[in-house]
Design a protein around this nucleic acid. Structure first.
Lengths: 206, 206
DNA sequence: TTTACATTTAACCAAATGGTTAAACTTTTT
DNA sequence: AAAAAGTTTAACCATTTGGTTAAATGTAAA
C-alpha cells in the first residue's frame, strides 16, 4: 500500500501561517495557533523560520508577489488597452475569489508598518510592469482613447473589484435584511459583467 | 487662572481604545498600549471596563452605530430616491474621511467573530431604517425608475465609496509609481463626482 | 470635620507568549 | 553498517499579557 503523499512540514507551516496571519495579522497571530493549524510542534516553526517576524515576512512577501503579479497584463502590448483592462478585471476577480482576505491583509499590514512595505514593493516591482495609469495616459496622449481622469478610474476599478470580497461578511447580513441572499444574488460572473459596463461607460463617454 | 478642561479618564480611555483597537484589532491590541495612549494607569482600564472584551465591546458598538446611522437617509421620503442615494454617498464619504479605518475595522472583526456582530446588528437595527435595496425595489415595482440589479448596485456603490479610504496606503504607493500624487490627484470631491456619474448612469440606463 | 463614595495608583499574580535546548528519531550518504 | 545530515519532539525559560488587590488620594454630602 502506497503511502499518501502529504505536504512537508515546511509547506504545512507556510499554509497554516498564511491562514492565521491573514486572519489575525502579525500582532494578533499566535505561534501556537499556527503550529496547531499545521498539526506540528511549535518548536518546528522556529527550526524552519527562526522567528515569528521571519515567518511573517515569508507569508507577506508571497502575498504581495501574487497580488502584484495580476498587474502584469497591463504591459501585454498584443492586446488593445480596453481588452487589457477587462482581462485584468477577470484575473483579479478570479484571484480574489480564491484569496478573499488577500487585499485586506496587505492593506492592514501596510498601514501598520509602511516601511516594510516600501522595501518589499521596490524589490518586487524592479524592472517589472508599468502601471495601468501610465498605459492609459499614453493611449490618451496618442488620441487612441477619449480623455478621462485616469487616477480616479484606477481607484474606482480597484474598488469595484476588491471591496465585494473584503466586505462579504457585511454584505451577507445587509442582503439578508433586505430579503436577498448573498450566495444567490451575488456571484463573480455578475460582478464581472457590471464592472465591464463601468469600463465600457468610461471608455465610450465623450 | 482657570484650569483647562481635560477629558475625563473614562473618555480618554474610550478614545485611546478606539484608536488602538481600530489599528490592531481585538487580539492584536494590548491593554498596556491603550493605557499609554490614554496617559493613564493600566488598572484604570479594568476599573472602568472590567475586561478587555468589555472595553472592546463598547468601542465596537459605537463604531457599528455610527456606521449604520449613515443609512437612515434611505427612509427619508421627502426626497426622490436618486437624491437619497446621492445624499447617502455624500454623507458616507464625509464620514469615512473622518474615520477611514471604520469599515475595515468592522469588517475584520465581523469576519473573525460573526456571532457578536449578529447580536449587535439586530439590536441596533430594530425598528430602524429600511435598506437601500428594499426602497429601490419598491420604486422599480411602481415603475418610478428603470429596472436594474439592485443588489449589485448596492455592492458597487458601497465599493466605490468605501474602498478608496481603506486602501489609501496602497493607492499612495501605486500613484507615486505612476508619477502621480495621491494627495493631489485624489480628493473626496472628485470621488463624489465620479460616483455621482455612476449613479446617474445606472438610473438613466434603459 | 467627619463620613462616605469615587478615582487613581503601585505592587502583585497566574497564564500565555515567543523562543531555546538537547536529545531522539529518520533519512541520506559514504 | 556506520557516519552524517536532516527532522521532530518534550521540557524548559524569560518576558509579556490580562487581570487583581489593597492602599492612597480626591471629592462631595452629612
Amino acid at each position: 500500500m502506497k503511502k499518501l503523499i502529504v505536504a512537508s512540514a515546511e509547506e504545512k507551516i507556510l499554509e497554516a501561517a498564511k491562514d492565521v496571519f491573514m486572519k489575525y495579522g502579525l500582532y494578533g497571530a499566535r505561534m501556537q495557533d499556527i503550529a496547531e493549524t499545521a498539526n506540528i510542534n511549535k518548536a518546528l516553526l522556529h527550526y524552519y523560520f527562526r522567528s515569528k517576524e521571519k515567518l511573517f515576512d515569508k507569508v507577506f512577501e508571497g502575498a504581495l508577489k501574487k497580488y502584484f503579479q495580476q498587474m502584469d497584463v497591463f504591459s501585454d502590448e498584443s492586446l488593445p488597452i480596453k481588452e487589457r483592462v477587462l482581462k485584468y478585471v477577470d484575473n483579479l476577480i478570479s484571484f480574489l475569489f480564491e484569496y478573499p482576505q488577500m487585499s485586506i491583509f496587505i492593506i492592514k499590514e501596510v498601514s501598520i508598518n509602511p516601511e516594510l512595505f516600501k522595501e518589499k514593493v521596490h524589490e518586487i516591482k524592479k524592472g517589472k510592469s508599468i502601471g495601468l495609469i501610465k498605459v492609459l495616459e499614453e493611449e490618451i496622449a496618442a488620441s487612441r482613447i477619449n480623455k478621462f481622469d485616469t487616477a480616479m478610474f484606477m481607484v474606482n476599478l480597484q474598488s469595484l473589484c476588491s471591496y465585494p470580497f473584503i466586505a462579504s461578511p457585511l454584505f451577507k447580513i445587509s442582503l439578508k435584511a433586505n430579503g436577498k441572499d448573498w450566495n444567490k444574488d451575488f456571484n463573480t460572473e455578475k460582478l464581472k459583467e457590471s464592472i465591464k459596463n463601468f469600463v465600457e461607460f468610461t471608455f465610450e463617454k465623450k
